[in-house]
Design a protein around this nucleic acid. Structure first.
Lengths: 193, 193
DNA sequence: TTTACCCGAACGAACGGTCGTTAGTTATAC
DNA sequence: GTATAACTAACGACCGTTCGTTCGGGTAAA
């Protein structure tokens, strides 16, 4: 499918140069056509962008939710650490997560509202799943605390810090060091010991 | 000074729209002149951008280093939590930190190398100061651990997660909740108790 | 089997605009 | 009188987009 090739190239250049910095001509060139031909597949630049955005969103959301839908869940240490590893793998295996991050934090101004809603949607869903798990672990006395909110937010913070390191990402060793450090301190912070 | 006004406007639009999305004409318009007049003060767009970048870098670096140069330092809980509060204040009080963050993570492609070096420079300096403090606290048995590396990286992770929330930033309550959660878990993770 | 038509896909050409930049000119201030 | 800062005008390049056209493959009528 040609339109998939276009979206793939668009994803690449949107990620590297941002919305404004990515031109239809370089995207078209990447797939071996002229920029006018893109209009046979998409209504315009915005349409192309939003389709790429929604593809990226769906990939990220389904990957995360799928992770929590399987596994035995009775070992928070394994589940949570595994989730961090999942994030790293997702990021390193396909471009969509980096694109998604860039557009979440620095969206093209005229699409800010649309993007914000997509981001809120995905964020709420992930948070809800996490919170439910933490509540179970608290009830089973597998971790400390009363409300699930504190460990949920703290864990989301760890996820964010790893993501930031990945975006910044030119140093594999530093990434691993930060992961181990954040995880060690986080786990000590929520576990009985 | 007119060139300061130009830099101020440039900072604003570079932050909102990125390097490629910010045009010299809107920047000039903001200070009430034509875009050609900018060339009386700067060599071109890159020159303007790099001057704004270095101003932002210096502001951030000096703010952070200054924080650690004063205070009694014998109370890690106060020092570290105060640092997080400082970051939040810095971010909310001037645009430079947001600009700096945007350009650290998603630099204009043709200036990537220059920017990367500035980022590495600032990061190393902050990390070194932090690491020295953590080592002292470990030696004084004010926090747990052997090497200063783990708490340093973990704390930098907390800082990053707060920064991300600030960038994302449309929800003051959520910011405070995440700050409290991350801080609570982090402090429990490195303190005797 | 041929003919006529349709339609998606890609094209060249061109549109109005904006981009960053340069040259040359004018006004203001020391 | 000289320097500085702003201006007008214009440059070539590229932007996203639209138009009309062409080509090829399927479909239906002859």
């Amino acid at each position: 499918m040609k339109s998939d090739e276009i979206k793939e190239a668009a994803l690449k250049y949107f990620t590297i140069h941002g919305y404004e910095g990515a031109s239809l001509s370089i995207i078209a060139e990447e797939v071996g056509m002229k920029k006018q031909s893109i209009y046979s597949h998409f209504k315009g630049k915005d349409d192309l962008f939003l389709q790429v955005l929604r593809d990226a969103k769906e990939t990220e959301l389904s990957s995360k939710l799928q992770y929590f839908s399987k596994g035995d869940k009775k070992n928070p240490e394994k589940v949570l650490y595994g989730f961090l590893k999942l994030i790293i793998n997702l990021f390193q295996q396909n471009e969509q997560l980096k694109f998604w991050l860039r557009m979440s934090f620095f969206p093209p101004a005229h699409l800010e509202k649309v993007i914000e809603q997509e981001v809120i949607d995905i964020e709420e869903k992930v948070q809800r799943v996490l919170e439910r798990n933490f509540q179970d672990w608290i009830n089973d006395k597998l971790i400390i605390g009363e409300s699930a909110e504190t460990p949920t937010y703290a864990f989301l913070g760890v996820v964010d810090s790893i993501l930031l390191e990945l975006v910044y990402g030119n140093d594999e060793k530093r990434l691993n060091d930060k992961l181990e450090a954040s995880w060690t301190v986080f786990w000590r912070g929520i576990s009985h010991h």
